[in-house]
Structures are given as structure tokens and as C-alpha cells.
């Protein structure tokens, strides 16, 4: 029995669509029947439905053998996990957004402190980072920050708040991760799942 930690919300819908595209209907049917349950089980797999940022925690602790979460989440957390493969959904990108273009953005609000610090270090510009947990756009809208660093999919939320993408940065997508020990102790089951996930586009 393999246990897989999944992000709730939009990524779960994308994962179900992905499962259908590769004919893994037993899994997709089980996940589609979810209403408010946090644990879903079939004959061969148990899914834990958790917050995206907690997926690497469940995997690192060995409660889940595998996990699916965004590369943005992994970027911010230094976890002892195996980062096994790209999955073809959850596409978006990091972007620096502001009301208008500027020569420099000395104050930046973000949920992604690590990524933001690394970016400004790479361009050799000092930056003050204001950490926020959500509604980050507001910080630039009311001039608490010169810009925000956030993940962008369509850009609609930015535009609705009077912001524009100024600098497009790293691409993001869903990743399959594994617990360090489970990767070896359940290797044949994990490899079989990887092979099935690799069927996409084949």
C-alpha cells in the first residue's frame, strides 16, 4: 500500500484530469468522489488531502511515501525528500509585479522569501522583504511595497488589483516527491507509478 499526499484545491482538479488522461481511472474515480474527506483509500493506494505547503512535511516524516506539490513550495522549504519528476500540470511562474516599471524595487512583499532573496542577490540589488501570508497584491496596491513577488498563472488577479507583471522569472509546475526511505523500501511500487505517470504523450 502506497500513501500519497496531495494538495487540495486547484491542483487536485488538475491531478484528476491528468489521471484521466493516462487512464488511471480507479484513482481518478476515488478522488472525484471526495467531498470533505481528508483520507481517500482504494485497494492499492491511500491519498492524504492536505494543504500544498504541508505536502513535503508529510512526505519527509514518512507518513506519506509520495507527494505531489508545486515546485514553488519545494523552493521555499529545505526538506529531506527526493524530488523525483516533473508532472504536466500546475503550470505558472514566479513574477515581480508592480503598478508600473521602475529602475529598482527596494521593498518587496511576498510569501516567497527565499526565492525573492535569491533573485535580488543574483542581480546584486539590496532588498527589504516583507513577508505576507496572503492577499499579497494589496501591499503594492496601497504602496506598502514597491513590488510583490508572487506566482502568476493568468495575471487576472494582478490586473484586477491595478498591477502588472514587470519581470517574468522561473517557471513552476507540479512535482512528484518521495520519502527518502520509501523510495528504496517501496521502490518497485514507486517505479511502477513513475512509469504510469510517464505515459503522458506516449
Amino acid at each position: 500500500m502506497i500513501t500519497i499526499a496531495l494538495s487540495k484545491g486547484r491542483q487536485l482538479k488538475d491531478f484528476i484530469a491528468f489521471l484521466k488522461s493516462i487512464d488511471m481511472t480507479q484513482w481518478s474515480n476515488a478522488l472525484e468522489s471526495v467531498s470533505r474527506e481528508l483520507v481517500v483509500q482504494t485497494d492499492s493506494v491511500r491519498f492524504l488531502l492536505v494543504k500544498g505547503e504541508d505536502v513535503p512535511v508529510y512526505v519527509e516524516e514518512g507518513v506519506a511515501d509520495l507527494g505531489i506539490t508545486g515546485s514553488d513550495v519545494l523552493y521555499e522549504q529545505n526538506r529531506h525528500i527526493n524530488n523525483l519528476m516533473d508532472l504536466p500540470f500546475g503550470y505558472c511562474h514566479f513574477a515581480l509585479a508592480a503598478k508600473e516599471p521602475k529602475d529598482a524595487y527596494p521593498v518587496v512583499a511576498t510569501k516567497y522569501v527565499q526565492f525573492t532573496q535569491n533573485y535580488f542577490d543574483s542581480i546584486m540589488q539590496p532588498v527589504k522583504i516583507i513577508y505576507l501570508k496572503g492577499s499579497v497584491e494589496l501591499a503594492a496596491t496601497i504602496d506598502m511595497a514597491d513590488a510583490i513577488m508572487d506566482i502568476v498563472q493568468t495575471g487576472t488577479t494582478l490586473r484586477d488589483n491595478g498591477l502588472e507583471e514587470q519581470i517574468r522569472l522561473d517557471d513552476i509546475n507540479a512535482r512528484l516527491i518521495s520519502n527518502k526511505h520509501a523510495f528504496f523500501s517501496k521502490n518497485s511500487e514507486i517505479q511502477s507509478i513513475i512509469n504510469q505517470f510517464n505515459k503522458v504523450g506516449a
Binding site: 525528500i81 527526493n82 524530488n83 519528476m85
Partner: peptide
């Protein structure tokens, strides 16, 4: 550091 990070995570596609 990038190679070391990718190795630590067994990130084959990386």
C-alpha cells in the same frame, strides 16, 4: 551548490 542540491534530492530531470 546546484549540483549538490540536485543530488541530495535525487532530482534526475534537474
Amino acid at each position: 551548490p546546484e549540483v549538490r542540491h540536485l543530488l541530495r534530492e535525487r532530482n534526475l530531470d534537474g
